[in-house]
Amino acid sequence: MRVTEKGQVTIPKEIRDLLGIGPGSEVEFISTENGVRLVTVNENLSKEDIAVRFREKLGRMAGTLDLGGMTTDQYLDWIRGPREDLDPR
């Protein structure tokens, strides 16, 4: 991606669609230790729009976590580790 003389870049369509960026959208660039993050400023979104975007993002994540055959409860027990206050073995 090349920066123009005016300091502009074109955000790829796939990224614009993923983040819901359209004409007039506001974005911010945030410096991190690994580079820069592009984030959207959602100050004018309705609660319904935010909920729709959240459901869409959840839908894209569905099926991406392999629990190795564990149930959700088994996975949570595994990730949390032993709880002495609940199970003093």
Rank of each mutant, 00 (worst) to 15 (best):
L58E: 13
V41N: 03
L19D: 00
S25I: 01
E48G: 05
L38C: 10
A51M: 07
V39D: 03
F54I: 11
P23L: 09
P23G: 12
F54V: 13
E48K: 05
I30A: 06
K47P: 08
G24K: 12
L58G: 15
S46L: 08
E28M: 09
K57N: 12
E43N: 11
R53K: 15
L58V: 15
I50P: 04
L58D: 10
R55Q: 15
V36D: 06
N34Y: 10
N34G: 09
S31Y: 03
G20P: 00
I50H: 05
T40V: 05
P23D: 14
N42I: 14
V36W: 12
G35A: 03
E43I: 07
K57F: 11
R37K: 15
E43S: 12
F54Y: 12
V39A: 02
R53Q: 09
E28D: 15
N42C: 13
V52I: 11
D49G: 09
G59P: 06
I30F: 03
G24D: 11
F54E: 02
S31F: 03
S46C: 09
G35E: 04
G24Q: 10
K57P: 00
L38N: 09
E56L: 14
N42G: 07
L45G: 00
L58N: 14
L19Q: 06
F29E: 07
N42L: 13
E56K: 14
V41C: 06
V41A: 03
L18H: 02
I50S: 07
V27H: 04
V52L: 12
V27W: 02
L18N: 01
E48W: 03
L18T: 01
L38H: 10
N34M: 11
F29K: 05
P23M: 09
K47M: 13
K47Y: 09
E28L: 05
E56A: 12
V27E: 02
G24N: 13
N34A: 14
E56W: 10
I50T: 14
L19E: 00
K57L: 13
S31I: 11
R53N: 07
I30Q: 11
D49V: 03
E33I: 08
E28P: 02
E56G: 08
I21A: 00
G22V: 05
D49F: 06
E28C: 04
A51R: 08
K57G: 08
E56M: 13
E26T: 01
F54G: 00
V52E: 11
G35H: 04
T40Q: 04
G24C: 07
A51Q: 10
V41G: 02
V41E: 02
G24Y: 05
R37A: 10
L58Q: 15
G24P: 01
I21D: 00
G35N: 01
V39M: 08
G20M: 01
G35Q: 04
G20V: 00
G59T: 13
N34C: 10
N44C: 04
A51S: 11
E28S: 10
L19I: 05
